[in-house]
Each structure stands twice: as C-alpha cells, then as structure tokens.
Design a protein around this nucleic acid. Structure first.
Lengths: 217, 217
DNA sequence: CGTTGAACTCAACATGCGTTGAGTTATGCC
DNA sequence: GGCATAACTCAACGCATGTTGAGTTCAACG
C-alpha cells in the first residue's frame, strides 16, 4: 500500500538531473503542460478548458500548474504565441523580385499547411483568438510586424498605389490566408480541407497576383 | 416590502395578450433571451457564457430559460444559425452573366458588411464556430448549399475547369470571405477593420476574378 | 366567478471549478 | 551527512455554475 501523503508514484529513472528537485530522463514537465494547455485552450476556449484536464493530459496534478504559472490566466498568456517559424517563413517569401512574389508567397503558405505541427498551432491560435481578445491582439501584432508591414512596403512599389491602398491590400491578402486556415481546419469545408497544399498554393498565388496589379484609371 | 415568493415586480402594462400567461405590450421575452444568448455565446464561447448572465441581460430569471429551452445546450442549438439574408444575398449574386460576377459578388459581400445587424451575427457565428463543432457544422452546411454549390456550377462553365477544380476554387473564394470577416471583426486588423465596404468590394472582386480565369496549359 | 395553464420567480441542490497550504521526495552543494 | 531548494501530490476551501421543484401571478375561457 502507498503511504498516506505526497510524493510521486513513479520511481525515479536515475540519470543526472540538472537542477535541484528536477527529475531526470523524462521529457520536461513544463513543456508537456504547455503543449496540453495549447491543445485544450484551442479546442474549448479559455473558459471551456480546465486545469484538471490539462494536468491530466500532462500527467501531473493541477496544483503543479498553479505552482509553475501562478494562475490559469497566466498559463494562458504564457502559452499564447504565433509559431515563429510559420510567420517568418511567410514573411521571408516577400523578399525577392516582385513579379514572382505571388508564387513564393503561395509556396510559403503551402509549406506551413504541410507541416502538421505548424498548422496545428496556427489553428489553435485562430480558435483561441475567436473568444479571447488577448489572443486576437497577439495575432494582430505578430502579423502586422512580420508580414503586413513588409508586404505593404512591397505593394508601394506598384505605380498608382499609395500608403493606404497598399496597407489595405496587404490586410486583404493576410485575411485571405487566415480564412484559408479557418476554412480548412476550423470549418473543415471540402474539398479545401483535404486538398493538396501545392494545389492550394497555385490558386492562392493567382489571388495574390490580382492584388499586384495597379488600380484601373 | 415585497411579499415572500414569486411574481414579477413590474406592473402589467395592459393591452391585449394573445395567449394565457403572455404579458402584453412588452417586446417578446423569448426573442430577448435568444438575442442575449447569441451575444454571450459569441463573446465568450459556449462554456464561457452563463445562463445567469444571459438571463440578466434579457431581464429574466435563469430558470425561465431552462423552462423555455430545456437546457443550456438546447438553447445554444436553438439559437445557432447563419443569418439567412446574408447567405441568400451572396448566393443570389451568383446569378447573371459570368463576366460581371466578381463585381456582383463583391457588392453583395459589401452590403452584408454595411449592415450592422447582419455582420454582427455573421461575426457571432464565426466566433462560435471556433470552439463549437456544432456551429462549424451549421456554417458548413449552410454555406455549401446556398453559396458553394451554385458557385461551383458557375465555375464549371469555364473551359478546362473540371468538377474538383471548380469546387476547390469555390471554397477558396468562400474561405476568403470568411477570412475577411475574421480579419475585420475578430482580429480587428487595420486598415481592414475600418475600411469602406465599397472599397473592400472592389478589391475582393479582383481576387474573385482571378479564380475565373481558366488554368494555364 | 372559478378553473386552467402558461409565464415567471425564488431558494436550494449537487457538481466541478480555480486556488491554497501543508506535506513528501529527490537533487545538488557544503 | 546535513541543509537548502525545487518538483510534485493531496485534501480541502469557497465559489459559481446548470438544473430542479415548488410556488405565484395573470390572461383567457366556460
């Protein structure tokens, strides 16, 4: 029989820990908590997710999460971020000759869609943003800095396109990508949901090209 | 002092009721509950909304909601629907000559964006869909029937565009509109959030036109 | 006027929540 | 070995939630 009171049931696996109290050999607990938290917040929203469920999935007690993060809200904020690789990949596609920008942009988006982890986390942010203004603000800031601002700059190169027109076009393109993710992963609309990313990329490039044309006189 | 027990504090305003127990003159209570419910579910998700808060906003007791709808979940399902005028307006824009379809489509979307009530309810559905699969399914079904199917049919008229290509393009356009709403109302990204709907319509028409071109050989 | 039935409120319930505080186990350092 | 420290669990708290049942008011109908 287990004695009354604390401790963990699992025997320590030995090996060399790095900090006092830190168990060794096991995948790090904080990371497991963060992963579980992202998943639950995305699936059910901030209010719908429970510390107990997150803790269970991470294989710990709910009190440990509070011990680490302070509160449910602080856990939420700590876990809240757009996956940097996705954002930078798309942002970098803006560099290079303007005439092939649509294809590079489409390819970058396709590469995110093809990456299960990246697209899962982008989906999580979209879902979370829908019910949590903090998440919406995070997306807004990251997108503005890494994608929309440079894209606006590139669109300014077009004749007859002023600042506001360029910025509006950039947000149209950006929201189109958001809609793509939303339709594919949240609504799950066919054939978009199971279409080959390369094929989506080709179509997306067409739409982007439409925004690269100077306005009619 | 109020006597112990039920009844309503507000004196009946007279007038002619239609059913027993039905108060007269006042805006109908069920509608007020439904409105409040839609708002709260959209703002905070299913789990985040509370019957008490909805009831307070509708000016009734939480128990009355259960009396009317049976349970929180049934209230949610009862209140869940895409605003028909928005969907049909966009769907009808598909009729007419193919060459001016992009402009009609853009104008229809703009008219929804310009209508505060319609766009508020579309936004509510998007937000709700993000955390509730039932809402996502509702959107999917309504969109498929009223917009995507007819749009696929129109795209089939293009030379070299088969069924699957037409359906994929249709969902790309549809998800673009969803992204537009999401970016404008949920993320609140500027200048998209405060741009003139007419101007958005003109840009959207360009993108739609890009999907009306036959694929390159 | 008396009965009926629906609209509606109130108080209470059980449940599950986030959070707390005390206690246990393991590690690194002296 | 002993001390400090961090990871971690357990039991319990107060609180808000969805739901229930009993009770009240009021319009309509005979």
């Amino acid at each position: 029989m287990a004695v009354k009171g604390g401790g963990r049931g699992r025997p320590a696996t030995g090996g060399s820990g790095r900090r006092p109290g830190r168990r060794a050999g096991e995948p790090d607990t904080r990371g497991a908590i963060a992963d579980a938290a992202r998943k639950h917040f995305a699936d059910k929203g901030f209010a719908g997710a429970t510390l107990r469920a997150i803790a269970a999935e991470a294989g710990v007690d709910a009190a440990l999460i509070v011990h680490f993060y302070g509160s449910k809200r602080e856990l939420f904020l700590a876990v809240l971020e757009l996956p940097a690789p996705a954002v930078s990949r798309v942002g970098q596609a803006l560099d290079g000759p303007l005439e092939s920008l649509p294809e590079r942009f489409g390819a970058a988006v396709a590469s995110v869609l093809s990456d299960p982890d990246l697209s899962r986390r982008m989906e999580a942010m979209l879902r979370t943003a829908a019910s949590e203004p903090d998440a919406a603000a995070t997306i807004r800031a990251a997108l503005e800095e890494a994608v929309l601002r440079p894209m606006t700059a590139r669109l300014r190169e077009l004749p007859g396109v002023d600042d506001t027109e360029a910025a509006l076009r950039a947000t149209m393109i950006g929201s189109g990508v958001a809609g793509l993710l939303f339709g594919r992963r949240v609504i799950g609309i066919e054939p978009l949901a199971s279409a080959d990313p390369e094929r989506i990329a080709r179509l997306l490039a067409r739409a982007v090209r439409a925004y690269l044309t100077p306005p009619p006189a």
